[in-house]
């Protein structure tokens, strides 16, 4: 789907000087995987906290030949994904897709597509809180020194204490990782289920935090390991016994619905593009939407 772009603004909205500033930060980020590069974050027509970091990356790297996919919560059709996609197409005129396999550039909030990414693809993730150490230290001046000295003991201590108190690590999505045994990094609020997709991926991952004015990156084939203790391994969200009510997929991340008629729960692929593609290829739920108790 190609749209005609607005004549009132520059290609991809930002002026070329701003794009260069952001691309320089991206290059530095790629050169030091997992390191947070401060950058002169620009104000955009969408809200701070609504994906301006990811969007600035998209706008800085996009060219007329790109094919764009925008997702929020896994869905191409959610309101914020639409709003961002409409904005980017309005100021670039690029082609868009819902098929992650066809996209050259994917901007996402909270999910990494289920279908494995390929070499040459760029994934721009929106980041609300880029600093993993913010969980244990509020001051930026301190956390920068902690990264420099690789002083990650306070974070590990907090995880240990969480296990001692509750028997488990009390972290949900946005579960921190170690990059190449050097930098501790927030993967953006993707579910733990998606963390492994970062490890040794052939695609380039770019992370943008607009409000916090930080950019970081994982170049292709980077080692990314979720924080865990030897005897307390990293665990992803359980998908056990669940299948998508539409396409029958198992072992994917699900949206959950309550069936008010039966009181049971229903599940559906969170990645709407993936689900759609499976159904186009003929996949169906084996049992017709049987609610599980």
């Amino acid at each position: 789907m190609v749209k005609k772009r607005s004549k009132h603004y520059n290609f991809a909205f930002l002026d070329e000087g701003s794009k260069r500033v952001i691309r320089r930060a991206l290059l530095k980020a790629v050169a030091i995987p997992g390191y947070q590069v401060p950058f002169g974050s620009r104000e955009l027509p969408i809200g701070r906290g609504w994906g301006t970091g990811g969007l600035q990356i998209t706008l800085s790297v996009i060219g007329p030949g790109d094919v764009l996919k925008v997702i929020d919560q896994g869905s191409d059709d959610s309101v914020n994904a639409l709003s961002i996609r409409n904005f980017v197409t309005a100021c670039t005129g690029v082609e868009t897709t819902t098929d992650s396999g066809e996209a050259t550039l994917i901007q996402s909030r909270h999910r990494i597509p289920e279908a494995p990414l390929k070499a040459g693809q760029i994934m721009a993730l929106q980041v609300p809180m880029p600093e993993p150490l913010r969980l244990v230290e509020p001051h930026e001046a301190v956390t920068r020194v902690m990264h420099a000295e690789m002083d990650y003991a306070p974070m590990w201590l907090a995880l240990y204490e969480s296990i001692v108190r509750t028997g488990d690590i009390e972290l949900g999505a946005d579960y921190p990782v170690m990059v190449e045994d050097r930098y501790m990094m927030m993967p953006s609020p993707i579910p733990r289920f998606d963390n492994h997709k970062l490890h040794m991926s052939p695609a380039l991952f770019l992370f943008g935090a607009g409000r916090e004015k930080k950019i970081y990156a994982l170049p292709p084939y980077t080692r990314v390991v979720s924080l865990a203790f030897d005897d307390h391994p990293f665990r992803v969200e359980s998908t056990h016994g669940r299948v998508c009510r539409l396409c029958g997929a198992a072992d994917v991340y699900f949206d959950e619905f309550f069936d008010s008629a039966t009181g049971g729960r229903l599940y559906q692929c969170s990645d709407s593009g993936y689900c759609e593609k499976r159904r186009r290829a003929g996949a169906r739920a084996t049992e017709p939407a049987a609610p599980t108790a």
């Binding site: 929020d72 919560q73 959610s78 909270h110 609020p189 579910p191 969200e237 949206d255």
Partner: peptide, 8 residues
């Protein structure tokens, strides 16, 4: 929407 993180 925070469906994904809330599920987690």
């Amino acid at each position: 929407p925070h469906y994904v993180t809330f599920q987690s």
